[in-house]
Design a protein around this nucleic acid. Structure first.
Lengths: 344, 344
DNA sequence: CTGAAAGCGCTTACAG
DNA sequence: CTGAAAGCGCTTACAG
């Protein structure tokens, strides 16, 4: 015998009350007597009743599920952001459903289509590296789907966004190297088709210009994906230049670790002969020796902020805010890889 | 003017066909003429119709959403498992909704209650470290919710499980150290209240026993959470013992990295004087110098296997399989931290 | 404070 | 091959 789920109707029969009364009692509706509420709740517990939330969502044409599109959730940055989203959403009573675009533009578009099926109260998105064009986002916006973008956000598209100031953060990180006495500062960067990596490079340049230091193209290397292995190659390239760098600003931590290792292996002391700063403050920055200075990009907080912004938009009756851009404050965490240099 | 969503009824009016015909045409139901299907699909595209999947789920009392409960998704192992789940589920047409128990037993129980609301076709679970008792899982099982556990699975509870053989993997890893000539092998382990860490310790012991090596309690350290910092302390403890270890088997990679660093800093050569093997094959194992030997625990594949098992159970009409335990083959990846020792 | 009734958008068994 | 109709389980405006 298969047990059928208990419904409001079952409770109604058991208690000889109208279905509507049961529903309201369970909702703690003010116009129901405390005694009735008590009776209903007891019986509900006794029979193991749980509301069919599909039916409820359907009736109210309103769900409590947030969709998240991220390039890849097993990248630490994204898993932290998603953790922040889940944390905030959970407390606000929302569920979080995840989709990986895996940096495929095609898949990203397909996911946005799936999201147009009424199941989602809103969507949080980080664009994939391959994403060109924003028509798929426009479609979502057109159907009034609440949207928040984080980190890699579309330009020229009005929407809620949670970002950090990549330009400013990189500028400060590079100025830190300059203050430590570095004169020939190298950069290992990410693909310049991606806005955030472009901004990090530009922040780096700006710092050099501010301090009248030459920007030498032989000391600038862009990688495809900022991987550890690409970092090794880039660092070796830097080593082969006639002018050796005495400081390196890297757009993430993996390449910064590569740089430290390659230079150390070739007899350079870090930070004494070459200081290194990374970006993202990954766990490895506290493990590598010397510990790596890095920009804390506030991934977890970014997730929380994105969820907060989205839920506010979902629940906003007034509909007065068109869009908002939240910029989180980053923090340059100075560790050994750049800290004692100017004392020598 | 707020645009109302297009419904089957709208299409029905536009095309002068019954709602049921529209529904079937969009479903490619065999009993509908090709011409009608064509007309319907064209019109649906034209008006931007997408099925209200809440209504559909409600009507069919069947959803395409899988719930996942993990302790914390920003732990690399779990983010990889979830990535594997999402990958398989996406291809099978399912969504994945995530919940973090954050190792709180209370929160884990609360989540399992939320899951009893008809929104989920099935649930994939990794127990939290604090979890005691299985009543909350029993409740889910009782209401016929398809379940799959992975990694930290409940004992004494019949259910689908995807695991690796922690005992066997650790035994092999330790035997590898023995083959490399290690005589005094230490162990840095996790909390022995957690099954997998207990098994890893037991595999370690068994290897020593098999080879008639003494198990010295002074060389065995259990940590609370296998963190990098705990690893540092444990390694320092090991160093202070009268008999120094010449091999260390660690229950994860972070503590293994700690061990390498502490011993190196104290003048020990790795692997020549002390060989080290970790567990999980984290990215850091290919970064730390020397590269760390480690057990590949198949996290991504574990996620795929869990999703596969769950979806099979969800879609299984026959209902003939009571439960299944899938054990994935691990792989000991030998790198420098344990590889050249026996040549000296 | 409680109840009767309509209806959300779909699917499906039945009829023709 | 197509249609009419019932109904999934809930919520809510209306009535009393």
């Amino acid at each position: 015998m298969i047990k059928r789920r208990i419904t409001l109707k079952d409770l109604s029969k058991e208690l000889d009350l109208a279905v509507s009364t049961i529903s309201r009692a369970l909702d703690d509706h003010p116009g129901i007597s405390p005694e009735t509420k008590e009776r209903v709740k007891l019986k509900a517990d006794e029979l193991g009743f749980t509301r069919n939330s599909i039916a409820s969502s359907f009736r109210k044409s309103k769900t409590l599920t947030i969709g998240v599109i991220a390039p890849q959730i097993d990248i630490h940055f994204h898993s932290l952001v998603i953790s922040g989203i889940e944390e905030y959403a959970y407390k606000a009573g929302y569920n979080v459903t995840i989709f990986q675009s895996r940096n495929s533009f095609k898949r990203e578009k397909k996911i946005t289509e799936t999201l147009q099926n009424n199941m989602f109260a809103g969507v949080i998105i980080c664009q994939g590296a391959e994403t060109r064009g924003i028509d798929h986002f426009k479609k979502l916006k057109k159907m009034k789907m609440p949207l928040v973008f984080y980190d890699r956000v579309p330009t020229g598209f009005e929407a809620n966004k949670v970002i950090i100031n990549d330009f400013e953060s990189s500028l400060r990180a590079t100025e830190h190297l300059i203050e430590k006495g570095c004169k020939n500062i190298a950069h290992i960067g990410g693909p310049q088709t991606t806005g955030i990596f472009k901004s990090r490079y530009e922040g780096f340049r700006k710092a050099l210009e501010n301090h009248h230091l030459e920007v030498s193209s032989s000391l600038i290397h862009f990688t495809k994906g900022l991987t550890y292995d690409e970092g090794l190659s880039a660092a070796k390239e830097l080593l082969s230049q006639p002018v050796k760098p005495d400081g390196i600003f890297c757009s993430n931590d993996y390449t910064a670790v590569s740089a430290i290792q390659v230079f150390q292996k070739n007899g350079f002391k870090v930070p004494d002969q070459v200081a290194v700063v990374g970006f993202s403050n990954y766990p490895i920055s506290k493990i590598i020796e010397p510990n790596l200075s890095s920009v804390n990009d506030r991934a977890f907080e970014m997730g929380q902020a994105a969820a907060k912004l989205l839920i506010r938009q979902i629940e906003d009756e007034e509909d007065v805010i068109e869009s908002e851009i939240v910029t989180l404050k980053t923090e340059l965490i100075i560790r050994e890889s750049s800290s004692t240099r100017n004392m020598h």
